[in-house]
Design a protein around this nucleic acid. Structure first.
Length: 564
RNA sequence: GCAGUUGUGGUAUAGUCUGGUUAUUACUUGGGCCUUCCAAGCCUACAACCCGGGUUCGAAUCCCGGCAACUGCACCA
């Protein structure tokens, strides 16, 4: 692990470059060079393979610009902001709520800025640094704001996460999956957050790539059909208790974690397992990974349970690269409320339930003459009220009182009670959502960092062959007629077969091997003068440097098998 | 956002304090020679003073502003 050396080579060889460099750059943005983009794409392809074909989810793609309404409902417009204030003497900028809470010792999170300003005045709160006068409080919203349309009266934001794009498609998705829980949709794409001062390179970007899955499931059934297959897998868990008591991380099986209630449910544990499987398969070793449970105060208020996957780095310490949360029904309920659409699933019972109950009906022939024009709303009030309550009131006082803008007294003779048997075939259920959310840029960084290998002879990216940006180096041993033509033909042929190939004929063979190793090409193929005789080439392994002679006609199969 | 430090070819650097010739050196890269398996050697070429303004006869060098990187503080739903 060597961030500095790795970054240097990564910039030199075309993985990560600072954005807008010729105009001095802007912090919080990064460019992926040719090899970086290829690496990132390979990682995303591998992700799709695991979650789309592997888990049976489907990928959707929504807009990155969203109208205000969506983000109002999700809470981002109101809660994705920080109240800030500035000292007019020393110029220091503070979180206004933090300063105030410190002085008055009360939670002020729900208050408006004007109220906060008043508290500052009333309590004579000054700059904690120099005691100077504080400015009025303003909101800093971390979303990029824009306008939709020519009139400019429709406010839009760049999406701060890809998840909302899936939630707002819920009705369509529910139809698509024919109403059967659980089902899952994924989205990969850019998200935007106007960070106040991003500093840690690709770790905190203002524009970044997320890969998120939203798994909708029955709140009463959070099991996973494949749980029994993974129940003996050992997970390293930094639970709330471990963190609070400063203990060693737990090393326990999935089954134990479930039985002891450390992770909330099977689906969540299964997602932890899947996340780790993904990371190890793209070349991040298990011993630099851990699962950390969010502390009670750290968790979003709606989350039922939340675990981060963290990776160890030499420069930034433990860094969150994946968040896996049980968000309950928060998102669907909230969008349902704001959009007035029903976002739920009708769950049919195995057998219809028969329910005996008493219903109350207003006797309308008497209602009309008595209540006249108010009759419809009194009727509605009766229908909305609890039958037992009405019954009890009439037994006790001989009348039931409806309080609307006026008071209405309803005596027994105005009502008809009826015993009925109802058949209920099922119920509407708002699904819960389990969300694994991957930070692709941070994961790409982790792959770079942990693939980077220093040995006595060479420093190189030891990429897993499944994500290596270049798969093959093809070299004529010497740049002479004969081997050169064969090597060029072979390059063409293997490119046609779908491999990414670098052809290189310059300098000495050693230099070309070194250059290929540095960018992590797993296999190099060398054509020499013997090839002219026996039609065989040398295949050299990046890590062992061992060589093998393979006949050219067998090469496509050999490589197909190797990269499978 | 605040403070400090820094900014010279692709990379790493000399020169800046004390303003003055064609901006130093090494590696890398392109072309050529040589070369039958791990960065060898020879020839040759390309290539830089972060951006803008000021002071001055003259600025990589001094001053101001901006941008970026690093460190500390603050921030990270």
């Amino acid at each position: 692990m060597n961030h500095d050396k790795m970054s240097n080579i990564s910039a030199k060889r075309g993985f990560l470059w600072p954005s807008f460099e010729i105009y001095s750059g802007v912090s919080g943005f990064t460019d992926y060079g040719p090899l970086g983009a290829s690496l990132k794409n390979n990682i995303m392809q591998k992700w799709r393979k695991q979650y789309v074909s592997g888990e049976g989810f489907y990928e959707i793609e929504g807009p990155t610009v969203m109208p205000k309404e969506v983000l109002k409902a999700s809470g981002h417009v109101d809660n994705f902001t920080d109240p800030m204030c500035k000292c007019e003497e020393c110029g220091e900028v503070f979180r206004a709520d933090h300063i105030i809470e410190e002085v008055i010792g009360e939670d002020v999170e729900s208050l408006e800025n004007e109220e906060l300003d008043q508290i500052v005045i009333d309590n004579n709160i000054t700059c904690p640094e120099c005691g100077g006068k504080l400015s009025n409080i303003w909101n800093y919203n971390l979303m990029f704001k824009t306008e939709i349309g020519a009139k400019g009266d429709k406010v839009g934001y760049m999406r701060p996460e890809t998840a909302q794009g899936i939630f707002i498609l819920f009705k369509r998705l529910e139809r698509f999956f024919r109403g059967k829980l659980p089902f899952g949709a994924v989205q990969l794409g850019k998200a935007y957050r106007n960070e106040i001062s991003p500093r840690q390179g690709v770790i905190r970007l203002r524009e970044f790539t997320q890969a998120e899955a939203e798994i909708f499931l029955n709140p009463k059934d959070k099991t996973h059909p494949k749980f029994s297959q993974i129940e003996d897998v050992v997970l390293r868990l930094n639970s709330q208790e471990v963190q609070e008591k400063n203990l060693e991380p737990l090393e326990i099986t999935a089954r134990e974690a479930l039985d002891k209630g450390i992770v909330a449910n099977e689906m969540l544990i299964y997602q932890l397992y899947l996340a780790r499987k993904f990371l190890t398969e793209i070349g991040i070793p298990e011993d630099v990974l851990r699962f950390r449970q969010h502390l009670a105060g750290e968790m979003a208020h709606y989350a039922l349970d939340c675990w981060d996957v963290e990776v160890l780095t030499d420069k930034y310490g433990w860094v969150e690269i994946i968040g896996i949360a049980d968000r309950g029904d928060y998102d669907l309920t909230s969008h349902s409320k704001y959009s007035n659409d029903e976002l739920n699933v009708f769950m049919e019972y195995d057998e219809p339930k028969k329910v005996q109950k008493t219903v109350v009906k207003p006797n309308l022939s008497k209602f009309g003459p008595i209540f006249k024009g108010d009759s419809p709303k009194v009727k509605q009030a009766i229908e909305d009220a609890d039958v037992e309550e009405i019954k009890a009131a009439i037994e006790k006082d001989g009348k039931y009182v409806v309080e609307l803008d006026k008071t209405y007294e309803i005596t027994e003779d105005l009502l008809l009670f009826e015993d009925v048997e109802e058949e209920i075939t099922g119920e509407k259920v708002v699904p819960h959502v389990i969300e694994p959310s991957f930070g692709i840029d941070r994961i790409t960084y982790s792959v770079l960092l942990h693939s980077f290998t220093e040995t006595e002879e060479k420093d190189y990216f030891k990429f897993d062959k499944s994500v290596a940006p270049v798969q093959l180096g093809i070299f004529p041993l010497v740049n002479k007629e004969g081997p050169r033509e064969i090597a060029q033909d072979l390059t063409e042929q293997l490119r046609m077969a779908g491999f990414t190939v670098e052809y290189d004929a310059t300098g000495t063979i050693g230099k070309r091997y070194a250059r290929a190793d540095e960018i992590g090409i797993p296999l190099a193929i060398t054509v020499d003068f013997d090839t002219l005789e026996d039609n065989q080439v040398t295949v050299r392994d990046r890590d062992t440097e061992e060589q093998e002679r393979i006949a050219i006609p067998e090469l496509p199969d050999y490589l197909e098998k190797y990269y499978k």
